[in-house]
Amino acid sequence: MSATLNKGPRASAMWSRIAIYVVILVFAAFFLAPLAVTILTSVRSNTEMAQRSLIGWPQHLDLSNFAVAWGSFCIAEHCTGIAPYMYNSAVMAIPATILSTLLGAMAGYAIALWRFRGDNIMFGLVVLGVFLPEQMRLIPWTVVLRDTGLANSLAGLIMIHTIQGVSFTTLFCRNYYLSIPQDLMKAARIDGAGFYRIFWRIVLPLSPPILIVTVIWQFTGIWNEFLFGVIFTSGTQQPITAALVALGSGGQNVHAYNVAAAAVLIGAFPPLLVYFLGGKYFVRGLTQGAIK
């Protein structure tokens, strides 16, 4: 409802506009503060941080941290920087995002548009998956990976993230598809279209807004996941979060906060990009019924 609410005398309208901007800017400052600190940290030197303070204005601009973070920082004997870990995360997050979105779309479609016996119970079970903390799923997943022979592989992680993601994507898609008129379905069925045909021809073309929502949600979630990523992979297969934590936690007595900050900025780039590109559609997709 972007209807203009600024009626009334012009002067007071102007003042209220100013007030709006001031409040927004204060909030923006609050939201940006941690980012600002990260950026400042990423261009300082370690000695400077140890001798002065963790938070502070850089005395000298030290841009080398970015090069070190990207290409030469050592995680034990692997002196490769975070580049290969970024690659691992991409290899893991992209297929898992696509698969979980597609499966969620189909499941949501089936639940929303093909009323079948027990559909609500089915939906309830799927949604319950959303509420289970991931720490509790650690050991069961270990068993599943062992039994499927996918332990210590990115394929195993893709499987986990796909299955776990389906709960969320189904929830989103089902709510969205509820707004598709049943008449459309009936017409299609009279024309002799089956389950898959209707999905591909009618439902999917209507879906982009909600698919963007689920893609953003899934991609950022998977990209930032740490626990499974570090436990279910080995050595050079580890995802970006494992590298970031390795950098951030340091050893008993050496903390390369500056390089870690640079790595955080680089590592956060893909999800930020997704948000920036998809932000507009995110709200639009939600508007069109993701939250019924």
């Binding site: 939201f31 963790l54 970031l244 951030g248 870690a260 956060a268 948000y275």
Partner: peptide, 21 residues
């Protein structure tokens, strides 16, 4: 984007910055 970006970054990393602030 400014208001949404915190969601894009995991707490594993931003938590440290908050602990400083």
């Amino acid at each position: 984007t400014i208001f949404l970006y915190p969601m894009a970054v995991s707490f594993v990393v931003t938590g440290t910055i908050w602990s400083w602030l």
